[in-house]
Design a protein around this nucleic acid. Structure first.
Lengths: 162, 162
DNA sequence: ACTTGCGTTAGAGCGCACTCTAACCCGTAG
DNA sequence: CTACGGGTTAGAGTGCGCTCTAACGCAAGT
């Protein structure tokens, strides 16, 4: 069994950090895409700092997600959080939904549905279908905005006219 | 010269609304895309309610944009706002940048640069180039999220695993 | 023994972008 | 005359999603 000491050993954290640490670019959003291919050879149980490293979220945010019921996390003998594979998977899943601007209330609702069992599958499907529509709308807005921006760039300088 | 009475005549507002009114769908975002092809035959001066109709913003938001210096708007004899073509163009421009998630501070900075004259063109270009990069990042995030969502939809129900 | 560094909690605070309120003004319709 | 439907202002309030603070616990190093 892991103790808090082992989990937070500098060597281990170092190793994790070297392999998986989020590039600490500008704020939170940008390169979080690296989440989309998390390696499969992570330890079975991670400390909060390690999950933070791997996901790019802060420990504060991870605690917040647990507080509002997005994920359940086990504790060790000292009361420290131990993220197992399932908990990590949840966090990653939530992060991906958040990255596509799904409101936290909706994420929360979806997770409640999953927790309620398989009879909620039709509703989950509906949630995802609605979310897909939203993403598609957002992508076309962004594409239009990209066109405007390209136009401003190629015409240089540019005014405030649309 | 237009009086407030004429500007806010129900008939005129009705006519504008019929032709241009924003579809009042869910919240603000969704179909604001119709902004991307504003008709060219609008009156020369619009009241705040008319600009609200045409752009889909609320009058509150339009006043807010003026307050924080995103646009200057003339007044009639009664102190009512009169949006001329230039003011409308600004509002539309700001709205498009906002739709692509440019923070208001950045919009504001860009507009300050425009107001400062042509010698700021290089910096404006830089702002737009950075914005383009952000949009591209956002589009690829959304595309990845779309793929995840499609996957969840096709595999039906779905768990919270990533 | 004490400092360092990680963790814990409850709860307060913050930044953003609106959004709304209260009190008031003006012109037309009934 | 008065009610109504527009407009005005300064300034307060809201909802979201974190983000931080304060006070504390444990254990390993010097």
């Amino acid at each position: 069994m892991n103790t808090a000491g082992v989990l937070s050993s500098p060597a281990r954290r170092q190793a994790l950090a070297e392999r998986y640490e989020a590039p600490e670019l500008p704020p939170l959003d940008p390169e979080l895409l690296h989440l989309l291919d998390l390696p499969a050879d992570l330890p079975d149980e991670l400390s909060i700092a390690e999950v933070a490293s791997v996901t790019g979220l802060t420990a504060h945010t991870l605690r917040y997600y647990e507080r509002i019921g997005l994920v359940e996390v086990a504790r060790d003998a000292n009361g420290y959080r131990l993220y197992d594979r399932e908990a990590l998977a949840r966090v990653v899943f939530v992060t991906r939904l958040r990255l596509s601007d799904m409101p936290i209330t909706t994420v929360s609702h979806y997770i409640d549905l999953v927790n309620q069992g398989p009879q909620t599958e039709p509703e989950r499907l509906a949630v995802m279908q609605e979310h897909r529509a939203m993403i598609q709308r957002r992508i076309s807005e962004m594409t239009a905005a990209l066109a405007l921006t390209e136009y401003k760039i190629t015409t240089y300088g540019g005014t405030c006219a649309p």
